[in-house]
């Protein structure tokens, strides 16, 4: 899935808030902590972050409120101008774009979904969804047709003429999603899209979102403060704290090998068996004698629980989707994960 050129590549990105951030950043010689910077009268929204987002991948940025995750995403779309570093989108330095080019970029390549939906209250569902198309000057019948298409995609057909306040929260967010998809963006930013919804609806919307993603295969940057949500959706997770990245890895790695204590605290209460896949624990065959039926490396330990408990082999062969054996799994190690023992 991963192509060689990243869709978004951020290098040493800084975003400082304060009276004259550029000058302050230049004066920073040694590494200063978030609190030291704050004592100087500046807030480090994003602090020396380097990340790449690959084509077709779903990157989830996770962090508590105030950790800088929303700021970082707003830097990617240049809703915020960064103080230092570079951000390239499709190889183009976005800080060097003119206003015209930036507008073009947003009109054709980017879509964004907001936490509190950001719907225009005076426009109907249809007009909201067609808004980005209207802004780029598409004519009325054409944008109507496209808007109806996306509205159908998010399952709101029949509600085109409603106004946002006539809809429930979940429905409003569907409008937000439809609007962000109307221009067929390459890159899809979602800023805590489901946090404002109640837990049952949230679950439903996550499923819906996974369905859409499977269908569309977009490059996605997804923000959440909900670790479970991150684990459920992500290809890779970025954990942020005080503006800097604590760890950037796959969900399995984050759960199995938290890089810092802060990350470890998050993973403490997580049922690791539901996150970790068999192939993460898999070791090379290395001449071990393999016997019996292999297990599927793509399954989580939790899904394999019955096999792990009932089987009496010490080593289990692991196979990929095609049935080719790729390695072995130590049953004891897997049972440790299952039972939550270290």
């Amino acid at each position: 899935m991963r192509a060689s050129t990243p869709v978004i590549s951020a290098r040493n990105v800084w975003k400082l808030f304060g009276p004259s951030p550029e000058r302050y950043l230049k004066s920073l010689s040694a590494i200063r902590s978030f609190d030291e910077i704050r004592a100087d009268g500046y807030i480090a929204g994003v602090k020396d972050v380097s990340i790449r987002v690959d084509r077709g991948e779903m990157l989830v940025i996770m962090g508590l409120s105030g950790s800088g995750k929303s700021t970082l995403v707003r830097c990617f779309s240049r809703l915020h101008s960064i103080t230092g570093g570079t951000i390239e989108v499709d190889g183009q330095d976005i800080m060097k774009l003119s206003e015209r080019d930036l507008i073009e970029l947003r009109r054709n390549k980017m879509g964004m979904v907001f936490q509190s939906f950001g719907l225009l209250p005076h426009r109907t569902v249809l007009e909201n969804v067609a808004f980005p198309l209207e802004m780029r000057g598409q004519d009325c019948p054409e944008r109507r047709e496209r808007a109806l298409e996306v509205i159908k995609l998010v399952g709101l057909d029949g509600r085109e003429d409603y106004f946002p306040r006539e809809l429930s929260g979940g429905q409003q967010q569907r409008v937000g999603i439809a609007r962000s998809l109307a221009i067929e963006p390459d890159i899809w930013f979602l800023d805590e899209p489901f946090s404002a919804l109640d837990p049952l609806i949230r679950r439903e919307m996550q499923d819906e979102f996974l369905r859409l993603q499977e269908m569309l295969g977009k490059t996605i940057v997804f923000i959440t403060h909900d670790f479970d949500e991150a684990l459920r959706l992500a290809d890779r997770i970025v954990i942020m704290r005080d503006g800097s990245v604590e760890q950037c890895d796959s969900p399995d790695q984050i759960v199995m090998k938290p890089a810092t204590e802060y990350v470890a605290k998050f993973t403490e209460d997580i049922d690791k068996a539901r996150v970790v896949h068999a192939n993460v624990l898999t070791k090379p065959v290395n001449g071990h004698v393999l016997e019996g039926a292999p297990i599927n490396g793509g399954s989580t330990i939790h899904e394999l629980a019955r096999v792990l408990v009932n089987d009496n082999r010490i080593l289990l062969p692991v196979a990929n989707d095609k049935g080719v054996v790729t390695g072995v799994l130590e049953r004891n190690a897997a049972l440790n994960v299952l039972l939550g023992a270290e």
Binding site: L79, R107, G118, L120, M135, G176
Partner: peptide, 23 residues
Amino acid sequence: EVIEAGHMSGCTRWQMLSHVYVP
């Protein structure tokens, strides 16, 4: 967020004022 939604929809300055802010 409404303002950002306007920006992300690619509004020019005039479009921002007439289509987003004032309504």
